[in-house]
Amino acid sequence: MRYIKFEDIENAVRDLCLSAAYDLPDDVLNALQNSRSTETSDRGKMFLDQCIENAAIAATERLPICQDTGFAVYFVELGRDAQICGGTLYDAINSGTARGYQDGYLRKSIVNDPLFNRVNTGNNTPAVIHLELVLGDCLKITLAPKGGGSENMSRIKMLTPQAGIPGVINFVVNAVTEAGGNPCPPVIVGIGIGGTFEKVAYLAKKALLRKVGAPNPNPDYATLEEEILKKINSSQVGPQGLGGNSTALAVHIEYFPCHIASLPVAVNLNCHAARHASVTI
């Protein structure tokens, strides 16, 4: 058994909040640069140039890439031979999040009640924490801060098996084109297929963590990703929804076995400021 200190997690999470907010990952920046080189619309080129310049300013001056520094969403892999001492894992992550958002001058965007009492919690907690138990004695924490504008464009549908591949394609393409400029395209399209109602939403979110443009290892799904990407980019939604052929940087599908009666599908969009950062303790 390996022991991991509460403070070590808290400190690592605090640092993760800052680097995720300031540093656009290389794969996202490369994808934006590739889009810039193939974009046909002058207006689209201008917007992509601004996004690339923005990423450079944010990294150099340690400023948030986007003012919406998001809901702090964590994907945590806890080794079964690791034990947290000094407090709970959830408390360590929330405490590190509060410190990170304070120390990093990041925006606090969480209200404590969705309906009756929308008062800002003041420290961007609670975080959303997805915990997975794995082999080994390490703790891997991935933070994917999620902005509200793109999250609001999410969709879920319990299709039935007869809808098949065309049903999935239509649902996804409509979700992206009807979202227009709202989620800050070019977007990354996270798609969940299969599982249950709650599982498919989780898969769609998890799909956004994949390296931009890395195909699904299953060739059937990899081909489907390509086909959907092509359809989305021929829609002419374009950067900022104002025309062009760079509507999505990538389409990522995650799938799971499902019930004989069901074909659940979920779409979770990430804006072009697709932020994520990981640490292993």
Binding site: F47, Q50, C51, E53, N54, I57, A58, E61, L63, P64, I65, C66, Q67, D68, R107, K108, S109, N120, G122, G149, G181, C184, Q240, C271, H272, A273
Partner: peptide, 26 residues
Amino acid sequence: TGGAAALISKSIVKCEVLCYDDLGPE
């Protein structure tokens, strides 16, 4: 331009809270 937030901040030369301070960023 959505998401060009650091770049846009360079065009803002003065900022003060006028009202509704209790709303924080809002």
